[in-house]
Design a protein around this nucleic acid. Sequence first.
DNA 1: CGTGACTTGTTCAAGTTTCAAGGAGCTGCC
DNA 2: GGCAGCTCCTTGAAACTTGAACAAGTCACG
Lengths: 170, 170
Amino acid sequence: MNTAPDPAAARHRWLTDEEQRIWRAYLHATTLLEDHLDRQLQRDAGMPHIYYGLLVGLAEAPRRRLRMTELAMKAKITRSRLSHAIARLEKNGWVHREDCPSDKRGQFAVLTDAGHEVLRRTAPGHVTAVRQALFDRLSPEQQKALGEIMEIVAEGLQPNEAGADLPWLR
Amino acid sequence: MNTAPDPAAARHRWLTDEEQRIWRAYLHATTLLEDHLDRQLQRDAGMPHIYYGLLVGLAEAPRRRLRMTELAMKAKITRSRLSHAIARLEKNGWVHREDCPSDKRGQFAVLTDAGHEVLRRTAPGHVTAVRQALFDRLSPEQQKALGEIMEIVAEGLQPNEAGADLPWLR
DNA sequence: CGTGACTTGTTCAAGTTTCAAGGAGCTGCC
DNA sequence: GGCAGCTCCTTGAAACTTGAACAAGTCACG
């Protein structure tokens, strides 16, 4: 179950007003930004943000291909979700699957030329959107701080961390 | 393949390596955190994070009720999405709808006692999860910086901002 | 009053994500 | 070899989200 009787920690310490303010700002900003980028990419590239990220992941990989599990890990999504997503991208002609010769269970997702072309065409607009929403509004110090903070948070939730769950292994 | 001070590409300035690192850390951390909290609440409270946020929104409102549009704005979601969500929460018995006497088009979403009870029971665990994932890992300075950064970003995407889109008015 | 523009909330259909289950291949061990 | 236990990926159904379209109510203004 959940938080079993654990005498050690101050289990039920509430958030202070200040913490609450920060937490709400976080939720507020992240949902707005995600919505914003999702809409931007849906409009300009015909796919949600996460799908775009998959194409980027493939574009960066050697020979523009990655095993399904690797891509899932890179994108931090479950393999199930990836399976559906690649099916859709395949239908769009932006990705195709290829059998792995060395492991017959394995599949490669491979970025097609059409997929690469979509990226080439839409990446500038996307970068601009990110820049306008985020980097253009923050001082260099704030950018640096943001990077550090996010690295800490990510590290703490890293799946190989003790007690963390393993979304893509389920 | 990114930081080319290419005059032709100057129109859409690429992200520098450092910016890219920050941006990836951001994406990485926010998706992990969202997944983590979604899973925590699904497990302990039987609903996704956003639905939980709706109950919290109602609990904070006078008389534990809010007009649909107000609640949608508060939660930063479309009215359509809210309509579905409230239908589900109503099925759970945690919310019920009430007609607005002064505007016959209007509906109030009202938190029921059962809904309040769910919050009472699950809030501590949720707060703990947020604390462990976020606040416990950041220095006071980092917390402060995070709050400021997120406020700036949110403000920039605020729907009443010029040129921004209005998700909940669509 | 009455008419047109707008608001409120819902609904429908299409798309996406999750969860549980399962087929198939790999691996180690007897 | 044979078999248990694992990994890789997919599937199908249910839950959730989206965007467009809609009925009903309100409002401003002639």
